[in-house]
Simulated scan of single mutants.
Amino acid sequence: MPAPHNPFKHAITKGEVQLGCWLGLADPYIAEISAGVGFDWLLIDGEHAPNDLRSIVAQLQVLAARDSHAVVRPPIGESWIIKQLLDAGAQTLLIPMVESAEQAQELVDAVTYPPHGARGVGSALARASDFAAIGDYLTTARDEICLLAQVENQKGMAALDDILKVDGLDGVFIGPSDLAADMGFIGQAGAAEVKAAVLGAMEKIVASGKAAGILTLDQGLQQECREIGATFIATEIDVTLFARNMRKASNDARQNLQSE
């Protein structure tokens, strides 16, 4: 029996758009609700959300019963945490702050078993192999692992051409917020200079044949990226969606019940 099919990887490889949402509330109940609304993928964030390995596993378990594909972002692209997340059953990883082709190659090695890579062999203990029930896991796992590099500063943008040449990297995701800060526009991801840099990077990624992705709540930028050929686009964040609607609910109640 081979490793489980990764529908997200195969969809972006074929150029099929996959729409997603960020999960930062770090709770399996929220993940379950989110998984039932129709997004193609949901990003479990370990970089800026209060997630640890156990909370990530709990959300992976919930999402496994639904159609939304789980993407996991670790806090850093180190081999030890990549190994833990893969063994926990994550099949798609988005690695933050990738700045060079050498770093991208190290990430490819980290998700690949020897002799071609450096991933530690411990699948008998792992949820990924259904606790050794998947007999061919070791020889088929790499085919279903999707590795995405997040380029989000000027150093990474300068190295983008070389990063795109790394075999085994399935896609590149541009992070507008960190890029804006590094360009001197902190808190202004919508600045014209930042948008131009993002769109220029999208064009390079698509031209390379790799999948291009982004998280932005700017519907205009979402559309522009899609027109260029971006295939994995996150359009919402559970934290901001909840906070925005809670504030509106509170304001609406006060206007309705306290106005005279």
Rank of each mutant, 00 (worst) to 15 (best):
residue 117 G to I: 02
residue 108 V to C: 04
residue 113 Y to L: 11
residue 107 L to I: 09
residue 157 M to W: 04
residue 114 P to F: 04
residue 192 A to C: 12
residue 186 I to G: 11
residue 162 D to Y: 12
residue 175 G to A: 05
residue 96 P to D: 12
residue 152 E to G: 02
residue 189 A to W: 08
residue 109 D to K: 15
residue 96 P to A: 10
residue 187 G to C: 06
residue 129 S to Y: 02
residue 208 S to Q: 03
residue 193 E to G: 01
residue 124 A to M: 15
residue 133 A to P: 12
residue 191 A to M: 07
residue 153 N to R: 08
residue 111 V to E: 04
residue 148 L to H: 08
residue 90 A to Y: 06
residue 118 A to L: 12
residue 109 D to E: 15
residue 196 A to Q: 12
residue 139 T to L: 13
residue 184 G to S: 08
residue 161 D to W: 11
residue 137 Y to D: 02
residue 171 G to L: 05
residue 120 G to L: 02
residue 101 A to W: 08
residue 194 V to P: 00
residue 145 I to C: 05
residue 109 D to V: 10
residue 129 S to P: 01
residue 141 A to C: 14
residue 162 D to R: 15
residue 123 S to E: 14
residue 196 A to E: 15
residue 139 T to D: 14
residue 126 A to H: 01
residue 106 E to W: 10
residue 202 M to L: 08
residue 131 F to H: 13
residue 102 E to N: 12
residue 115 P to V: 07
residue 106 E to I: 09
residue 114 P to A: 07
residue 125 L to N: 14
residue 174 I to P: 00
residue 128 A to R: 02
residue 143 D to Y: 11
residue 129 S to W: 03
residue 92 T to W: 03
residue 194 V to H: 00
residue 140 T to G: 05
residue 137 Y to V: 01
residue 149 A to K: 07
residue 149 A to C: 13
residue 133 A to R: 15
residue 91 Q to R: 15
residue 205 I to S: 01
residue 187 G to Y: 06
residue 173 F to G: 01
residue 195 K to L: 11
residue 182 D to H: 13
residue 194 V to C: 00
residue 142 R to I: 11
residue 165 K to L: 13
residue 134 I to F: 09
residue 190 G to K: 05
residue 106 E to P: 09
residue 185 F to A: 05
residue 194 V to W: 00
residue 136 D to R: 11
residue 176 P to H: 02
